[in-house]
């Protein structure tokens, strides 16, 4: 398992950079991972990240696109605009959760 330094804090990550210990996650770490992905977090991004966090606590998995739409009330288009080139993967990474394991 790899480790990574963010603002003096050490976090555990896997080969692809997904955090493996969510208790190490905080908003500063999220913003730093987002910057690495070329994204500057805005309230619109946080709405997505908060939904993922909330849904993961409840279901134990990162929500898929349809769940983001129907339950989270976040349209597909918005997700692609906020997190270009792989919306759910990137949002999950920034949220400190594992890479989504679903096909849809």
């Amino acid at each position: 398992m790899a480790q990574k330094q963010i603002n003096g804090t050490t976090i555990d990550v896997n080969d692809e950079g997904y955090m493996t210990n969510h208790s190490q996650w905080n908003k500063v770490i999220a913003a730093t991972i987002a910057e690495e992905e070329g994204i500057t977090l805005t309230p619109a991004h946080w709405r997505v990240l908060d939904f993922i966090d909330h849904d993961f606590q409840e279901k134990g998995v990162v929500p898929g696109m349809r769940r983001m739409n129907k339950v989270g009330g976040i349209p597909t288009k918005d997700l692609y605009e906020l997190f270009p080139n792989g919306p759910i993967k990137k949002a999950a990474k920034i949220s400190g959760y594992p890479k989504p394991a679903s096909c849809v």
Binding site: G64, R66, P75, K77, Y80, S102, V104
Partner: peptide
């Protein structure tokens, strides 16, 4: 059950995905 949408909704999603 595994959140695969019905065809019309799926096409909307794919279209919105660009």
């Amino acid at each position: 059950k595994i959140d695969i949408p019905p065809i019309p909704e799926f096409l909307e999603m794919i279209h919105d995905a660009g």
